[in-house]
Design a protein around this nucleic acid. Structure first.
Lengths: 209, 209
DNA sequence: TCTCCATCTCAACGGTGTTGAGATATTTGA
DNA sequence: TCAAATATCTCAACACCGTTGAGATGGAGA
């Protein structure tokens, strides 16, 4: 129930479309989004939208970009709030990632659906969208691991955190916040310590060829 | 392409629809699936499909169920082939999970989209669909961890493996098989060893409240 | 004021999922 | 064996969708 248009020219239709579409996606998921429905709600002809976006897909991409930026914001904020200890900061980055996914599950799903279609497949795909959640996580990892940090480890941590997020929003795993917090901490801690411990040679070397 | 209908009655339209839809999903993704397109290809009126399925959604659910069963099959097969060592078996379960996701990315995405809509949110949601990938992973975990295995740890491992799968099919992370293999082994190993090491008290207790 | 141009409306095209009524074939059972 | 019952399919239609091209509208700069 937002923008009732009074004049012939809306004034900020582009933003109105993004806002309305984003709201509808968060409510019902990206597949259920209808541009005609948005136009109806904004009070504008469906065709007007095409003055501002090439296609429905383009709108989804823009919303995904914004969501990536929001996620990056949250991660940075939470990291900063976690204090000086690099391990606590690393944990808080992971927690923020999961928290965002749980707070905006439909947006989170969209992010990795359209980014998959948009990027060529390299890790760098993300960084083309403003500030980069992956970069933030990598930095936090470097702070923690120091000179032990190589290229592959941050992706491993990212996997653990991302998988936790996906499973939770798919309905698997606990629902209560306390249990979720415990779990995300366990996931991150296992990943972090397991990596470090293995690097230090505490555990036997790989028995897999 | 497949089933040219010669008689008025198709004979096995239900299976034909599932096969055709599954093929099209693997090619173009679930959103692009058109029932009319399937009907056209099979050589049948669109409305005929509704004798066998309540809705398009029901078809997607059936295909997701089948995919879950196929995944479970692969996991069991690979586990059995991994020999007697429980750690190697656990690693092979994870590797099979990721391999399935990479081989059938569109199906894999569908599985967790519709299962999310279908289940109430409990972990048990999966087990209502034939054999249960989560159960297989849990069993492999129990074999490895023995009496240390509690309720929460398998989910943590599942997160790591699932996240790896999702990131890879979203285009993040390495593309070459060798690198992927290394990565999945690192993820699993860190998860497994990290958990075990933490349980044994080698690493300092949590510094997070 | 008049022109230019971005913006919006209108009407239409081809596509979709889904439904109800009726045609057709297979199966049942007397 | 033949009719009735039932499962399966066709047909026509509905309401919706994304998208496009042509034309109306109104604000900005000369």
């Amino acid at each position: 129930m937002g923008d009732l248009k009074t004049s012939y020219h809306h004034g900020d239709l582009r933003r109105a479309v993004v806002d309305c579409a984003s709201r509808k996606i968060q409510a019902d998921g990206a597949d259920k989004l209808s541009l005609r429905g948005c136009a109806r709600e904004i009070g504008v002809d469906p065709a007007a939208i095409y003055q501002h976006f090439k296609s429905k897909e383009a709108i989804l991409e823009e919303i995904a970009r914004i969501a990536f930026a929001d996620l990056a914001n949250l991660m940075e904020t939470e990291t900063a709030a976690a204090g000086a200890d690099s391990r606590a900061r690393l944990l808080s980055v992971g927690a923020a990632y999961v928290a965002f996914a749980r707070a905006h599950p439909k947006l989170f799903a969209l992010m990795f659906k359209v980014s998959g279609a948009a990027t060529s497949g390299a890790t760098r795909g993300v960084s083309s969208m403003g500030r980069d959640p992956y970069r933030i996580l990598t930095d936090a990892w470097s702070d923690f691991a120091g000179d032990e940090a190589d290229e592959v480890s941050p992706i491993a941590l990212w996997s653990a955190v991302h998988g936790m997020a996906e499973l939770l929003i798919s309905g698997f795993g606990p629902e209560e916040d306390a249990e979720v917090t415990t779990l995300i901490e366990e996931v991150c801690a296992s990943m972090i310590d397991g990596r470090k411990v293995r690097a230090a040679g505490v555990v036997d070397a790989d028995e897999t060829p």
